[in-house]
Amino acid sequence: MLTVVWAEAALQLRVLRRTPDRMLPLVVVPLLTAAILTITQNAGRADLAGTAVVGTAIIGIWGFAIYIAGDIIESERWLGTLEGVITTPAPFVVTLLARIATVTAVSFASIAESAFVADVFFGVHPAVHHKLLFTLTLACTWLAMTGTALTMSGLFVLTRAIGTYQNALTYPFYVLSGAVTPISLLPGWLHPLSRIVFLSWSADLLRACMTSGGVADPAKGIIAILVLGVAGAGFGLWSTSVILRRMYRLGTIGHL
């Protein structure tokens, strides 16, 4: 099965490399970083540099996952390859998860992009003071993002207006995830909603890792990311299986 996983990862990387327009969500990350850092620097809030870097990186991760990973099943249908993939002995869900995991892994390049822009163009050097926790948070975020994108990939098959849903699922989540504005600054009534978005826990932990003080209750944050990620993956597996059965029944696997 490892062969299948590697093949899917290699396929996804080749597709991304040879379809440059698919990298657009990551191309805009430096611009976003520059815009937000300009605002914070001119407002005399150099202390928010870490928040800006983490926030724009999360925007990149979420956007790339929604636009690219969420679109994988539909892209396969468009290419006419979905029928071929399904009729092989490889479990479809493994092929799908491997590709989504590859996309979400690539999306983490947005962290390096943001840090690079901050460093080179603004002279800001966001330091990671809690490297182990930072790495663990990234790993858990990757897993949770993969599970969530799996859900999107299945559900997007049900609509003929994927772009509309993809757009609708960006800005509200940038706010709910606390990507740019820490959740503590959001209206109180949004807090519960925000807390069921795993990225809000990720953003808090990543920001905390970039402060020199201690990180309050890191285990709670990690567990929250994992629980929400597993819930997302579970729902994704279930919904993908239901949607596939529906396609078998209706004969729409190869339909555009």
């Binding site: 099965m1 062969t3 299948v4 093949a7 396929l11 071929g84 092989t88 002995p89 490889a90 092929t95």
Partner: peptide, 10 residues
């Protein structure tokens, strides 16, 4: 090569 992996070939 990709399709061969889906047929579980080494």
């Amino acid at each position: 090569m990709y399709w061969s992996a889906l047929y579980l070939l080494k």
